[in-house]
Nucleic acid binder design. Structure first.
Lengths: 263, 263
DNA sequence: TAGTGGTCTAGACCACATA
DNA sequence: ATGTGGTCTAGACCACTAC
């Protein structure tokens, strides 16, 4: 069986495991189901916040048992791509929820919890289209000179400027995003990407160093030149491991620290 | 059924889910199995590197189906406490394996892979018994003044001193560990803890900041005072979430960086 | 050949949410 | 009352490892 006519989805259905010959191309059924679900997520068929079909329905659609679908969903849930809610259904994870609001921001105040300082203040310093330099292009899998959107902003907590961030986005996937829209948007930036451009950040890599503050930092973060700052370079990826954002942050760590858990 | 006489284990068997009344004390069978396995690991019944009983045997022992045991083991494997090897069995994870040698060290060279600079050199600067200060006691869940083992060492890569580490261990669980033994031991420190003291580090929390180098750093890391360094404070935990090690590291980040993955 | 973990199924019952 | 995900079972077959 390759495809079934009663399947209303436009994408190709995963072919059922061929147990007649044990070649190297073997892939477990549940992995194929998982790949199919990933495709649908990537295609935007099910949007962040929405529910996906029930396990029973997916099982019927793929002509496998509920347990096999369950195992595929289990893995996607453990990767934070899906969210299971007993009695309600399985939902596409989103950055818009309060819980996962700061899933990618590891800087926390030394005392108190996040948010105990009141709401963060965000000041856009700069926002424009530009050309990718060699290192920006490499991080975003572009070519040098390709158009990118660039933004610079300062995040303040408790009235003090703590974070200076430079952000680069590839222009193509964010077609229609104006500097103005970015500057005026209130709310999590990753939520904007989801709702307006169907770009969901699912994973990120960060490289961290200690660097001395420059004149720019003195101006924007109100620190003396030479003050040690945490330099955090982040590349965020979407469903298919496509790099979609480069972010370079400079964190003041006199009153905050970067918290990490090692499993 | 509470316990069965044919169970040869000394520890209490998990009581089977009481489905007759749905109280708040409900806990799934597989969670109880998981707890039992955790107990055995904590008690040192199965040692790091050894295999645990097969799924079938555990299922028979607990009088549950293989699938229920499998789910318990699945979770423990995903938490890196157990390691499954198809055809061979399930093994207690260990820090002695080459793969997971540096599971807790996130500092990597900017170019090349870890180890491309040749083997790390470790120089013990100091190693002695002392009394816990207030902050050390708090981190290790001790009382101020309790005896701790303290060590200071420098790690060099490619001939350059990169890391200065101060390590504190509670004296009680490491009874018999002499400063001499620590200083002369070759190999991963966490492997020594496992084999000699049945203390396995399964999890750690790190708090990171940027700090200026002091005179001590100038002496031991060969940097100018004021040079930004990465300050990494780590508390490592064993099976029952007991804090067992406090480690304060200062990393030079001119040629290395701290790498982190955000899920 | 035997034993291990890995996949898959079919069906039962439970807990939770909603109508 | 119905539908969802959560747990548990019993059994089949496959893939890998070791003897």
């Amino acid at each position: 069986m390759q495809t079934s006519p009663d399947n209303d989805l436009t994408t190709a259905e995963p072919s059922v495991q061929a147990s007649s010959h044990t070649t190297a191309a073997f892939s477990p059924l549940y992995q194929q189901i998982k790949g199919f679900i990933l495709n649908s997520l990537h295609a935007g068929e099910w949007k962040p916040g929405e529910s996906i079909p029930s396990e029973m329905e997916l099982a019927a659609r793929f002509k496998v048992s509920q347990g096999t679908v369950r195992k595929a969903i289990d893995e996607l849930a453990s990767e934070n791509l899906l969210l299971r809610r007993q009695g309600k259904g399985t939902f596409v994870a989103t950055h818009a929820e309060q819980q996962v609001q700061f899933r990618f921001l590891k800087l926390v105040p030394d005392s108190g919890t996040r948010g105990s300082e009141g709401p963060a203040q965000r000041d856009i310093i700069e926002c424009r289209r530009s050309r990718a330099t060699a290192d920006v292009a490499r991080a975003l899998a572009l070519r040098t000179g390709d158009t990118v959107l660039q933004a610079r902003r300062v995040l303040s907590f408790g009235g003090s400027p703590i974070i200076l961030e430079d952000i680069w986005l590839p222009a193509a996937p964010f077609k229609g995003l104006t500097a103005d829209r970015l500057a005026n948007y209130q709310g999590p930036m990753y939520a904007l990407f989801e709702t307006e451009f169907n770009v969901r950040m699912v994973r990120a890599e960060e490289n961290i160093r200690a660097i001395p503050a420059s004149d720019v930092h003195e101006l924007l973060l109100k620190v003396k030149p030479g003050t040690p700052l945490l330099s955090v370079e982040r590349v965020a990826y979407t469903y298919r491991d496509e790099p979609m954002e480069l972010r370079r942050g400079c964190y003041r760590t006199e009153t905050h620290h970067y918290h990490n858990t090692l499993g």
